[in-house]
Amino acid sequence: MGKISRFLALITLFMGVVFGACDFSEFDKNFMKVGTKERQRLHNEIKNAYIKSVINDDLKCKKASLERLIKANAVFNIDSKALKKELASLSQANAKNADENKAKKSTPKSQNSAEESKKETKNEAKNEAKNTEQKTKSRAAQTKEQKSQKVEAKVEAKAEPKSLRVLEVLSDKNSLKIKLNRNINKGELKNFTLGSGDSWRNVYDITG
């Protein structure tokens, strides 16, 4: 166990020199530009950085080094199925943590905020009830006014019609047109015929 501990300590120390504080700026800047030998060196450094993140249980550096290691493996035609699977599980874990943190932030921080929310709900209920009452009164008043108008209309309909007046008389050889000041009811117009022998006449008697 002592040898293993010293070996891990040496690896950790070496990793701190190669990629200090999870800094991959050299890899990002130079990996695709340099020659094969230098590219191999950077590839090894990324593998070492990944080992360091596993030892230190540093999820942030682990995810960052995995992304770059998968990229480097693709250049050297190295299979990265296991690494991709591990990266996917890390992404899911990060997404879950983000959702949990968001839920915690949205939760009320104190009982006071809960009481204030209850007060606001009660006030809203009171205002809603008041508005409903006002609307009901307004509708009742409108209904009453409409009924009153209907009654007045019926009374006017039952009232005596204004007296008939002749406004204009037009006639020719075959017709006689009389224009009155209003329409007449059936009861106000009587029609009958007077005749004797070869002579006859139509009589129209209009009341008034």
Score class of each variant (00 low, 15 high):
R182C: 02
V18L: 12
E168Q: 09
A95W: 03
K126S: 10
A159K: 07
K177W: 06
T143V: 15
I78H: 04
S80L: 06
K118N: 04
E86C: 02
E156F: 10
D23N: 07
F24I: 05
D58S: 02
Q149R: 15
A114H: 07
E115C: 05
S196E: 09
K105F: 10
L66D: 01
T193Y: 05
K109P: 07
N30M: 13
L90Q: 01
L10F: 06
K173P: 02
F7H: 04
A141G: 03
T193I: 08
K190G: 02
E115A: 11
F76M: 07
Q146A: 15
R6S: 11
I11L: 14
Q92G: 08
K105N: 13
K135G: 04
K158N: 12
M1P: 04
K63Q: 10
L83M: 09
N44D: 14
N77P: 08
S171L: 07
N202C: 00
S65Y: 05
E156R: 12
D99P: 00
K37P: 01
I51T: 11
N131K: 10
S89F: 12
N185Q: 13
S91I: 14
A49P: 03
F14C: 14
V166N: 00
V18N: 01
N174A: 13
D23I: 02
G20M: 01
K52R: 10
N77Q: 14
D57L: 14
T193R: 09
N77R: 11
E120M: 09
Q92I: 12
R41P: 00
Y50N: 12
K71A: 15
Q146H: 12
E156M: 08
V18S: 08
S106P: 02
K173G: 07
G208E: 15
E145M: 14
K118S: 08
V155L: 14
I206S: 03
E120A: 13
E38I: 05
L180E: 02
I178D: 06
K119H: 05
K37E: 10
K63T: 09
K85N: 15
S89Q: 07
K150M: 13
K158W: 10
D172N: 08
V166C: 06
T121A: 15
Q40I: 12
K154Y: 02
E152S: 14
E160K: 11
I46T: 06
D58L: 03
L13S: 11
I184R: 03
D99C: 06
E128P: 06
K96M: 13
Q92M: 15
V54G: 08
A129H: 03
T107H: 02
C22E: 00
N131R: 11
D99N: 07
C22G: 07
K154M: 12
C61V: 04
L69W: 07
I46G: 05
L189P: 01
Q111Y: 00
I55S: 00
E115K: 09
E120D: 11
L8I: 11
F24K: 04
I78M: 03
G187L: 09
R41L: 14
G35N: 02
S175C: 08
R165W: 00
K130F: 10
Q134V: 11
L194V: 11
